[in-house]
């Protein structure tokens, strides 16, 4: 057996949730984790919508939503992480994990209005539609989660909310904030002006004679190079990159992260990415007008990714220890092993 295997019990095989020196004290073995996962009604919350929504997406393509898959995957991962490290809440209602046919029928029927709504309002350009129908469709994409509530009894819902509140909040935030294309598109007329003025101010510290030309894609006119600020320069892709990497960080370090600091770090990181984006465009204006316009035109797309990755790594380097709790702050890290349940 390789390193990382527990040796205290004969039935123990592989340790899950390995994390440094505390591994052998707190991790739960794979078979035990599997038993727990099967018993937890929380998995019904994720599996049932995933199954039915696959059918929904087939019947109503307008409901397709990357945020949904990402949020569900994040929820799964965080719950598994939680179950692998924390003692099981004994008060949770496990007797109702089997779904009654009546609840299942109601659950399926509740999806029908959403499918009908999506087919009624969905169109090729729906994602660009700022009117009420576009907003309704966007709401339908989020509301597809709600019918799941009828699958669970009230007691189970309450115990789930009590036990997995941080995981639900984290995946809810991921669902609502991941890749906010519609928000950016709706706010582009205002945001592009703000971005262009910020760029003009920052670049104006190094280059004289810059002129702001308003428009749908505002332009910073310089002595050598004119820079058009398109929607693609909004920083949305940089935000997406930050979010994917931050979710990876959540999954890997969920048991050690301080919850409020994580939320603060997430908001601060998104803000930092937007500020860094303004600095990136300002740097392009400066380099294009002071050093080489050809260099900017040739490499600005590739350099953008290197830059955003560097910003993420730098911000992580500065904040990583701040986000993590110490062993003393997190009793779970030093608690005794959890006894395996009956199999």
């Amino acid at each position: 057996m390789k390193s990382g295997l527990a040796s205290t019990r004969p039935e123990v095989r592989v340790v899950v949730g390995a994390a440094g020196g505390a591994t052998d004290q707190r991790a739960v073995e794979l078979p035990v984790l599997w038993t727990r996962c099967r018993q937890e009604p929380v998995f019904l919350v994720a599996v049932a919508p995933l199954f039915l929504l696959s059918i929904d997406f087939f019947l109503a393509p307008a409901l397709r939503n990357t945020s949904f898959f990402l949020a569900t995957a994040l929820f799964f991962a965080l719950v598994v992480r939680h179950l692998s490290l924390q003692p099981v809440d004994k008060t949770i209602d496990k007797t109702r994990s089997a779904v009654s046919p009546l609840r299942l029928t109601i659950f399926c029927f509740l999806h029908l209005p959403l499918i009908a709504l999506a087919n009624l309002l969905g169109s090729r350009d729906a994602v660009y539609d700022p009117s009420y129908s576009g907003l309704l469709l966007a709401a339908a994409k989020v509301l597809v989660f709600l019918p799941t509530a009828v699958l669970l009894t009230r007691q189970t819902r309450q115990s789930l909310l009590r036990q997995f509140r941080p995981e639900l909040i984290a995946s809810g935030i991921a669902l609502l904030t991941y890749f906010p294309f519609r928000l950016f598109f709706a706010a582009w007329s205002f945001y592009s002006t703000l971005l262009a003025h910020s760029v003009q101010f920052l670049a104006g510290l190094f280059v004289t004679g810059l002129v702001y030309v308003p428009g749908t894609s505002p332009t910073i006119r310089g002595p050598v190079l004119d820079v058009h600020i398109l929607f693609g320069c909004s920083g949305l892709d940089g935000m997406r990159l930050f979010q994917i990497l931050f979710f990876l960080l959540l999954v890997c370090d969920w048991d050690r992260m301080r919850r409020w600091r994580t939320l603060t770090g997430y908001a601060a990181g998104l803000t930092a990415i937007l500020l860094a984006n303004a600095m990136r465009i300002a740097a392009m204006v400066v380099i294009g007008n002071r050093i080489s316009a050809d260099l900017v035109m040739r490499y600005h797309l590739e350099a953008g990714w290197v830059y955003v990755t560097a910003v993420f790594l730098l911000s992580l380097l500065l904040s990583y220890r701040w986000l993590l709790a110490t062993n003393a702050e997190f009793p779970a890290l030093t608690s005794t092993p959890v006894e395996p349940q009956s199999r």
Partner: peptide, 8 residues
């Protein structure tokens, strides 16, 4: 970015 994070 992921590789950098895992190393850190």
């Amino acid at each position: 970015g992921g590789a950098g994070y895992l190393l850190l």
